[in-house]
Write a protein that binds this DNA or RNA. Structure first.
Length: 492
RNA sequence: GUCCCCAUCGUCUAGUCAGGUCCAGGACACCGGCCUUUCACGCCGGCAACACCGGUUCAAAUCCGGUUGGGGACGCCA
């Protein structure tokens, strides 16, 4: 196989969303696997909707995910002359023609056809067979025109061998003479895209199934332009629970890559989740290192059917697809603690929780504490929220914990300060002694140890659940434990 | 409406190309139990799917046809 060159060509009309990210990821994986190149091309020919902010957002999103590219970003608008030249060539070689029909006429015709439920709603070919004289006449009259591609009047069908879908064909007669140049002289996506892909020597086009009708037309364009047709692979789409295509417009932030960045996702965990949406290795593996994924990824194993991004709006427990959270949690629990430490550092800095000593003399404590608490965590955010009591005093105890473990036992108001005093008196505040004192106190007061321990957990960690109580006590340290136990009354 | 694509547990999927080893496997979610003084940890168990109808075959989730359902496209957007 000659050099593999793939591209990711987002149009900068909004942030990077998970559908686009998925496409980028598959292209990236394919390029890496074949020692090929990934070209990033910003398709900004729709000047009205393209913004710099959006370009930055897309680039940031890709960088955050760890998707790097080998060439670009190129900007489609910089190649406008090539696009125009290609259009001229197609006209002069008889592959395209000028169409003088007005937009209004065509809109009316289309609407009428749609309303009448006619099968033919596309262009009716009015200008396809204009004589040279008629054309000259209209040009003299300065009637505005668009350029349409002249679909060959052939029997049979055009087609291509899709890497995921197999052979795809469509009858020539079903294809309309589509517009390739606007009446203002600006070439359209269908043409620009092909011209750019030819120039960039793209070998494989991996994109969503929503492009399938474009692909058929573009195959025709490649042919007319005398260029080799690349290999196509159409990925299934990502749908919402109601099976509608996910979009920025109707789903908002939840489908934005930056949403996951802001909600404590580990970048690679999101990539891992996304790649599983429509692809599988063929066995039971679900968690992959980048190297491993590059190794086992193939276009042929991409699914044919659309998948559903399983998120419930306003779900109290799952703010996004439960599987995504689960995969993130798996990474959170298994990644080397130093790597987690680096990610948590960013969170803490943003949160005002960061202490320089965590990089210095308290580094060991910092890392071992993260290691202690991460077991039940799901996102990076949990360290600063659920796990806040380990790092700061301004934590808000969980209401459920307070209700269940404190308010039910009025006596804790005295008992916990008693325990504090005993802890304070301890010359060696270690796990064993802490446990002995707690149990002894419970015994003396004729209480179940759980009453004391659960009360203590609530006051000291603010949580209903967590690591072993005495591990937690040691991590938080004698002084803070004592202070919090003494101060129990403020929670009543 | 027309064209194109698709169809296995609630969700992501394995199995389909090379029919039998699949009264369908895994993961997430859910439910139950154990562990835990507590737990969106861990362990054990459970619930739960081949859309439907025909055909081919000794044998069909797998091949063929149809039906139904879903999605996409039908722009002087990309």
């Amino acid at each position: 196989m000659s050099e593999v060159r793939v591209r990711f060509p987002p149009s900068p009309t909004g942030y990077l969303h998970i559908g686009g990210a998925r496409t980028a990821i598959c292209n990236w994986l394919f390029a890496k696997k074949h020692n090929g190149k990934l070209i990033l091309r910003i398709e900004d020919t729709d000047a009205d909707r393209s913004t710099q902010e959006s370009i930055d957002g897309i680039l940031d999103g890709l960088k955050w995910l760890g998707i790097d590219w080998d060439e670009g970003p190129y900007f489609q608008t910089e190649f406008a002359e090539e696009h125009v030249a290609a259009a001229h060539r197609l006209v002069s070689e008889g592959h395209a023609y000028k169409c003088f029909c007005t937009k209004e006429d065509l809109d009316a015709k289309r609407e009428a056809a749609m309303a009448a439920k006619k099968s033919q709603v596309g262009y009716d070919g009015t200008c396809r067979n204009l004589s040279a004289d008629e054309i000259a006449q209209k040009e003299n009259d300065h009637i505005p025109y668009v350029v349409r591609f002249k679909v060959p009047a052939r029997e049979g069908a055009v087609g291509y061998d899709d890497k995921v879908l197999g052979r795809i064909e469509q009858a020539y007669r079903e294809i309309d003479d589509f517009v390739i140049v606007r009446s203002n002289g600006k070439p359209l996506y269908l043409l620009c895209n092909v011209v750019d892909d030819i120039r960039d020597r793209i070998s494989h086009i991996i994109r969503g199934q929503d492009h399938m009708t474009n692909t058929i037309k573009q195959v025709l364009l490649y042919e007319a332009l005398g260029a080799p047709v690349p290999v196509f692979a159409h990925m299934p789409l990502t749908l919402d629970l109601k099976k509608a295509k996910i979009s920025k417009r109707s789903h908002g932030e939840i489908v934005a890559v930056h949403f996951y960045q802001q909600h404590g996702f580990i970048p690679w965990a999101l990539v891992n989740f996304l790649v599983l949406l429509g692809w599988s290795p063929g066995d039971d593996r679900e968690i992959f290192s980048p190297e491993e994924l590059i190794e086992i990824f193939t276009l042929e194993r991409i699914n044919k059917s659309n998948s559903i991004f399983n998120f419930q709006k306003d779900d109290p427990k799952f703010f996004t697809d439960p599987k995504a959270i689960n995969i993130n949690a798996q990474y959170l629990q298994k990644m080397p603690i130093e790597e987690i430490g680096a990610l948590v550092k960013e969170e803490f800095i943003a949160d005002g929780l960061w202490d320089e000593s965590y990089d210095g003399d308290k580094k060991q404590w910092f890392l071992s504490t993260l290691d202690l608490v991460r077991e039940r965590f799901h996102t990076l955010k949990d360290f600063a929220t659920t796990g806040r009591a380990y790092f700061a005093d301004d934590f808000e105890p969980e209401k459920r914990a307070v209700d269940k473990n404190l308010l039910k036992h009025e006596g804790l108001k005295e008992w916990l300060p008693m325990l504090a005093a005993r802890y304070e008196a301890l010359t060696d505040f270690n796990q064993e002694n802490a446990e002995t004192e707690a149990k002894k106190l419970a015994e003396e007061l004729e209480l179940k140890p759980g009453v004391i321990i659960n009360g203590m957990r609530t006051v000291v960690t603010g949580c209903l659940a967590g690591p072993s109580m005495y591990d937690a006590l040691m991590a938080i340290g004698k002084d803070r434990v004592v202070a919090r136990l003494k101060d129990v009354a403020k929670l009543y």
